[in-house]
Amino acid sequence: MRYAMAVDTKKCVGCSDCVVACQTENNVPIGYCRDWIVEVTDGTYPQLELEIRSERCNHCDNSPCVRCCPTGASHYSDGGIVLVTHDKCIGCGACIASCPYDARYPHPDGYVDKCTFCIHRVQKGQKPACVEVCPTKCMYFGDLDDPNSDVSKVLKKRKYKTLIPEAGTKPQLYFLI
């Protein structure tokens, strides 16, 4: 099993619904966010290209955060989801410095926090909150090992990219282009 997410940059309008849904679902403290929207403008007026991406933790296959964690708090869970065990985390910040995507932050309670792919929902057969609420249905989530999952199907027929593949992290957040 290998959970992954695909975000369609052609459909995303950057409404930030996913950001708010995540904050509500996961009780993210005010002023923090586990996912965010990046808008890329390329070119010179009037030849402009726009790309909008909903970004979050890439749940990498070769996660630098898991590698550098001194206590084993950062670990791979079911389906490759990268999680932090709160009462093992000492809040040293090594994982925060190691993440090329800046996807982690120190929670006000001390431990390090990040996107969990809403594992508590996924285990119940539901989709992550951000995927569920997206008004343009631009996000796909599922098991890459299952050829009939939403994410497998869409990655089969569309072109895609990952962010900073050169960092060698083997990210599992795909952007359809």
């Binding site: 930030s16 966010c33 965010w36 929207i37 390329d42 010179t44 925060i96 932050y105 120190p106």
Partner: peptide, 22 residues
Amino acid sequence: MKEELIISGRMNYKVDPTLHIW
């Protein structure tokens, strides 16, 4: 010219606008 902006407003403590965890 290429410009990348976080438009949903992200200001995570000690991470934004540039990392300063240490």
